[in-house]
Write a protein that binds this DNA or RNA. Structure first.
Lengths: 342, 342
DNA sequence: AAAATTAATGCAACCGATTGCAATTTTATA
DNA sequence: TATAAAATTGCAATCGGTTGCATTAATTTT
């Protein structure tokens, strides 16, 4: 700490003007003379002045900070979303505070409190898989601090949501498998307490019924989609059945890739014996043998959308209703893992 | 903003004590009577008091915030590192501000300034691939704000560094290929201005020379390791040669996986025609056919290490020399993509 | 019971920027 | 040149905690 921090008072003193004028000059306030502004800016750069955000925040009651809480940072989808958010938010002059819930409601609550105490101007959330109670967001709602949910949303909370049409995506994936001749379609997915998994599941069921295939509950597996869980399900359950399924719809690509290797090891041919559809369109789905059919889920785009909505709200009047739901497009990307026909 | 924010003055007034006592009580100051503390805490929770960090930071000149600048968020390695950092830092009561340089020196400089102005207590950096000049970190050094570099480090800067032994890793990867009988080993890597790539390259060369294989510059390709770049290099250069290489050491797993698919499409057999070694041990290397031999690079562990070092420094006395270099262990994970013998 | 300690509490200044309103200076108008 | 209008600038209070030093209250010691 050799050199003291320069304040507007230092600038004011050297320029023989008031701190008020310096403050206004620095903010490009229209009432300040251009020459004065120039003198202020010049001296400021010369002395290496930097504004003290805390004094400013304290006074303005605004932090220019946006909080993000996600279940886990280390998935490609999440980091794409974050990358998109960061880009927009940063350009708009906001900072990002990021934390992860590790899929636990308790941690999510703590993080939410921390964010609240950090007085973020807005909060972006994708819910932990086991979050049942949403009261920790009440403080935000009550204070009119905007909260945007994405991907893993809470239906019951009145606020802006950005997501894809999971029902449709699930429907399309399943229908595709049916069209490829699958009759016994296994569905492996996450905790259906979460909309993303529930909706895909509903889409799956609807596609089945629309094609007159009865829904078989034993072909539905819900777990946490970790490597371990996928492996256990396949080895200890699926592969021990008398009749093996001929299709698999599994709701993320790394799990799909992992499942693929296990099934191949077990001697099954993909797609001949079992056709596979994943979800997300991560790079991983492109490099397996065969490449995996998947649903394109544009994380980066989603992140940018979320950030834009939030920034507009924050920088705009803020009176607009803040409870829209944005649905992003997804598409089925057909690759070899599911192509049995033609 | 229906309900006003509660301040220590509100608490003080209702309890008929001074704000000083409230402040001290809240901080568990030893000079405050236990009963008084209890009364303070009780009322605080009752009224939903939350400390104003800005007032506090302003006065204490400390922010409890740590900045992180990385080239890109959306890689599995990076997000694992971040996940590790976030975990430790969060437990220690610090916040994380994250931004990405998108591999550009200019953006890195801007981000650094923003971090500086946000008055982060510490900075964690992995350099952009094209950063040549490091003067933007001078302000931190001058002010004694700790900066930790990881993975992509700057040799010339005097500060703590956390990384792996890239030379050794490169050596091991190459030696392994040699042991599998490879004679013409192609090396595809990133910008060698960065230590990580340079050191691996040096390791590669040393392994060659130790095994009496002359280094062939035409077998060395340096690009930005994007899908496009890898594809271009392979299709327009490598695959057009008279004599194809019989080994490939490529310095990240997604590129390796991608290269694998291209080579297979070109009709080459892996590992028979060409043996492949990647880098990082991402999931992707496990699910390709054949699975890819790689170097295990523990991102999460690295993140936790970085964070611990920084926190210790910040919470400790801070007089300790802050210029150690931490080298994490890596190991070669042999998989089918390189196994030609035995 | 007076004097000396020790325990608790409070005063008041401070951190650095912001802003409503008033004051002053400059420029335009009569 | 006097006066109104516009352009600049500054005063002083404010945001909400923190902290050195002083003061008061409670305990001990003599």
């Amino acid at each position: 700490m050799q050199d003291k921090e320069i304040t507007i008072y230092d600038l004011a003193e050297r320029l023989n003007i008031s701190a008020t004028t310096v403050s206004r000059g620095l903010q490009d306030h229209p009432a300040i003379n251009k020459k004065t502004k120039k003198r202020i800016f010049d001296l400021a750069t010369e002395l290496g002045y930097r504004s003290n955000k805390f004094a400013s925040n304290l006074r303005k009651q605004k932090t220019n900070t946006i909080g993000v809480i996600v279940p886990r940072l280390n998935s490609l989808f999440m980091s794409s979303v974050l990358s998109g958010i960061e880009k927009i938010v940063n350009n708009a002059g906001y900072n990002l505070i990021i934390s992860q819930s590790f899929e636990q409601e308790a941690k999510e609550k703590t993080n939410t409190t921390t964010m609240f105490n950090s007085r973020v101007d807005g909060l972006i959330v994708s819910l932990a898989s086991d979050t049942q109670d949403f009261s920790h967001f009440d403080t935000f709602i009550k204070k009119n601090i905007p909260v945007i949910f994405f991907d893993r949303i809470a239906e019951s909370i009145q606020s802006t949501k950005v997501l894809i049409d999971n029902f449709k995506a699930g429907y399309k994936a399943t229908e595709h498998l049916i069209e490829q001749g699958c009759k016994e379609i296994l569905h492996i997915t996450g905790n259906t307490a979460r909309n993303v998994y529930m909706d895909r599941f509903e889409g799956y069921k609807k596609a089945l019924s629309d094609h007159n295939i009865p829904y078989d509950p034993t072909l539905f597996i819900s777990n946490d989609l970790t490597e371990q869980a996928v492996q256990d399900s396949l080895l200890n359950d699926v592969l021990k059945r008398d009749k093996l399924p001929d299709g698999l719809f599994i709701t993320n690509d790394s799990s799909a890739a992992f499942a693929l290797t296990i099934l191949k090891e077990a001697g099954l041919k993909v797609p001949e014996d079992i056709a596979i559809v994943g979800f997300n369109n991560d790079l991983i789905s492109k490099v397996t043998e065969p490449a995996i059919t998947t649903i394109n889920y544009p994380g980066n785009e989603m992140g940018e959308n979320i950030a834009r909505i939030l920034i507009n709200h924050l920088d705009g009047e803020g009176d607009l209703s803040f409870t829209s739901t944005v649905i992003l497009n997804t598409e089925l990307i057909v690759r070899a893992s599911s192509q049995r026909k033609k």
